[in-house]
Design a protein around this nucleic acid. Structure first.
Lengths: 110, 110
DNA sequence: CATATTTATCGTAATATTGCGATTAAGTAA
DNA sequence: TTACTTAATCGCAATATTACGATAAATATG
């Protein structure tokens, strides 16, 4: 088939997968890092920064926005993006929580 | 085209994307959670646990292994898997580091 | 008004992923 | 040896992603 069987997994598992998937591309990691670096909000500067067309960058921004990791607000004729600190923090917290459990495992094999 | 332009991004960005991608599927998150839960290593029990065929589970395990997030060792006629604590910890550390920077941003727009 | 500028979206091609049945490989048990 | 068990891999179909040119929509500027 080729379609992810989302129904069989928990909402939390699907949610986490969705956010991880949004981050799981070098261009989107680069966008997040650029947004971190600029502190202040940015827009089409991202297009100049990355080796990708405007259409492609716009699509990556769309995915990050759909996953809730960034927000955009209209600023004159351009659009200002910034990281959604709340959502990003929640994602980081989930990974951190998983890692806490992983650290508790006293290795038994492998 | 449709191929990721990996060459234009840094090795670190590509590495992080690769590990995130490996985790970015509900079935693979479920596998990691199951491995955490069992503490001791597991193998084909994963197939019984998940609503997926043996072939599909084997493929997911392969991707997690390729990303370095899990390890497998031969145990008689079956194979025992466990989480690679080192690699998982590094992934968690990278996300945590990004989040530290995100937290430092005093929101200016949005 | 006409014309840039900026960003989103559409359409399309190339590639990747997901899932499974069937088969293979390798160990175990009789 | 023959049968059984376990897990990997092959081959295929369905779907999703990546990338971009072209176009559209919306705001600014002359």
């Amino acid at each position: 088939m080729g379609i992810t069987k989302s129904d069989f997994f928990s909402q939390q598992q699907n949610e986490l997968a969705k956010q991880l998937k949004a981050l799981a591309h070098p261009a989107r990691i680069a966008i997040i890092e650029f947004l971190i670096h600029r502190k202040t909000c940015v827009c089409g500067e991202i297009v100049n920064e990355l080796p990708l067309s405007q259409a492609t960058v716009s699509q990556h921004l769309r995915e990050l926005k759909l996953a809730g990791l960034i927000q955009g607000s209209i600023e004159g004729s351009s659009i200002c993006y910034c990281i959604n600190q709340e959502e990003f923090g929640q994602l980081a917290a989930k990974i951190s929580e998983l890692n806490t459990y992983v650290l508790n495992i006293k290795s038994v094999c492998c």
